[in-house]
Write a protein that binds this DNA or RNA. Structure first.
Lengths: 203, 203
DNA sequence: TGTACATCAGTGAACGCGCGTTCACTGATGTAC
DNA sequence: TGTACATCAGTGAACGCGCGTTCACTGATGTAC
């Protein structure tokens, strides 16, 4: 790994090599540490070992950088959900498979929220409509965004979709910075599984 | 209404009269317009028609002002929920009453989130645990905080409490700045009622 | 009822800070000959 | 293979901004006599 690949502050070359990526990575680190509000352009350039104005070769303004970080956070959430889906058996009765998929998406969603609260909040902080924005930058390795993954898991259950999504999303936020903030790891996980149980039964 | 009561920029007296209250009101207005991040100490003093340093006679620092605004926002949410509860009939079979109460709390919760998104986000932005903080400042006219109101509505249904709360809270946030942001007023309300239906049936 | 005084809420000027953004520049790189 | 040149990514100094916070101050108010 060379200095330019790592985006480390010291460079031996005048050119950076991959500054755009380095800035998004720095921004993502900051989002991880403090949510979307912590994504600061100057600090990103500092972490990339570059002058502040260099950022303007790759992003129109601070907002554009934040959008890129937001997309990266959504892609990261998608990857976590996909990892959960990848552990499922491919065989069995259709109804059972559908339920298992819903479970996996909900579990991945909550796991990401608990493990990466800053990125989770950033993923949902976009200025434009998330649903219509199905850009590849927001997708996981399978090419689907978190929202498309959820829709797929809820295939044919449109009516109930809102309940499931609301419950999972709401629990995630209550655990992150709502009233359930004080729950510790294991308890949080148990509560998550219980809510997913109920959603499953409710459908 | 005198100038000092309104907290208007022009004063005829050297003393303000009720600066603490005026600052909290100004801060609440700013939270209403742009969420917790928009609560700025200097701007609050400007709106109250007072020098920036005057704020320090009433609040230790910016954080203390924000805490006060957050408490006010929670009290405001409580009032909206109480208003919804006040419209209920007091007579009927216990099970039906309990369901009606749950419905009312959920409806009030969502109504407040849609009508006052900035205050809603502010109410849930506190730094400390909301649940244990049952200070009077956070309560509505009946003396209960939003969380106590929700608990009361879910009386005896502790196991299912998380589902109900998560679903309502999650839907509120998805409508405010999540993927359902683009839903217009009537549709948003309908979706809200449908989710409450499902929660009710789920219990 | 009138006066001296202590209190303390609000003043206003100043501080250092980090931010986003601009601009004329410079020098490494890749290309054309 | 070697040289001239255009490109354009990154420099560094500067800008104005609004922020939170401090400090010695001032003057309206209420109280004690």
């Amino acid at each position: 790994m060379t200095a330019s690949e790592a985006g480390s502050p010291k460079r031996d070359t005048y050119r950076h090599g991959d500054l755009r990526r380095a800035l998004v990575e720095a921004g993502t680190d900051m989002a991880r540490e403090g949510g979307p509000g912590a994504v600061v352009l100057r600090e990103a350039t500092r972490r990339a070992g570059v002058a502040p104005s260099a950022a303007y070769r790759h992003f129109e303004d601070r907002r554009a950088l934040l959008d890129a970080v937001c997309s990266a956070a959504q892609a990261s959430l998608a990857v976590t959900i996909e990892a959960e889906l990848a552990g499922l058996s491919l065989y069995g009765e259709p109804a059972g498979l559908a339920r298992a998929r819903l479970r996996a998406v909900g579990t991945g969603y909550l796991r990401f929220a608990l493990e990466e609260p800053g990125l989770f909040r950033t993923a949902f902080s976009a200025s434009e409509n998330l649903r219509s924005a199905a850009s590849p930058a927001r997708a996981g390795e399978g090419g689907l965004t978190p929202f498309q993954l959820l829709e797929a898991a809820l295939d044919g259950l449109v009516e109930a979709e809102f309940l499931a999504w609301s419950a999972v999303h709401g629990l995630a936020l209550l655990l992150i910075d709502g009233a359930l903030r004080s729950l510790e790891g294991t308890t949080a996980h148990d509560v998550g599984q219980r809510v997913i149980d109920m959603v499953e039964r409710g459908l």
